[in-house]
């Protein structure tokens, strides 16, 4: 089985527990990295930088170190999901990481805004565990198996 690294930004402990359970229940053993707010997302990504192959004194992002995708909650303390999304999608390297918005809000305005900012997918948090299992399955299948990373 493919083993991927996934970054999940979620401030709610219950949701983190449910997501972790959903991955485990589905039988996935991916390396899941949980962060609790937007600042931590950016720090995490920043820490992925290594010495540039061209110029050893310069730090640079290297593709193989990127998470396979990011599950991003919109409402988080310190720096919210929209700001993180904007920052990632405006960055020349980081924008290559698929970002999946995973949030409670289902307002049309919010959905449109996220797609405008460059979200790769928008998923409303389901209200049953069954559905959560299915969603995790589908997201993972799509972004790890179906879609080709550029």
């Amino acid at each position: 089985m493919v083993k991927a690294s996934i970054l999940i930004a979620e401030d709610d402990a219950d949701d983190r527990f449910l997501l972790q359970t959903a991955f485990t229940e589905n039988g996935y053993t991916d390396a899941i990295e949980f962060v609790e707010n937007g600042v931590e997302v950016m720090n995490f990504l920043h820490n992925l930088m290594v010495s540039s192959p061209e110029d050893p004194d310069q730090l640079a992002y290297v593709r193989p170190h990127f998470p396979s995708f990011i599950l991003l909650d919109l409402n988080m303390p310190k720096k919210n999901g929209r700001e993180v999304l904007k920052e990632i999608k405006e960055h020349p390297e980081l924008k290559k990481i698929p970002v999946i918005i995973f949030t409670t809000t289902k307002s049309e305005i919010e959905i449109n805004r996220c797609y405008e900012l460059g979200a790769n997918s928008y998923i409303v948090k389901p209200s049953s565990f069954d559905l959560l299992l299915k969603i995790i399955q589908q997201i993972r299948n799509y972004w790890l198996m179906t879609s080709a990373i550029p």
Partner: peptide, 21 residues
């Protein structure tokens, strides 16, 4: 109402669903 109130409800549903399963 559209966001904050929905969260706990969603969790009640999800956990009760999980409990049943």
């Amino acid at each position: 109402a559209s966001h904050d109130f929905q969260e706990p409800l969603r969790k009640i549903s999800t956990f009760s669903n999980r409990l049943l399963m």
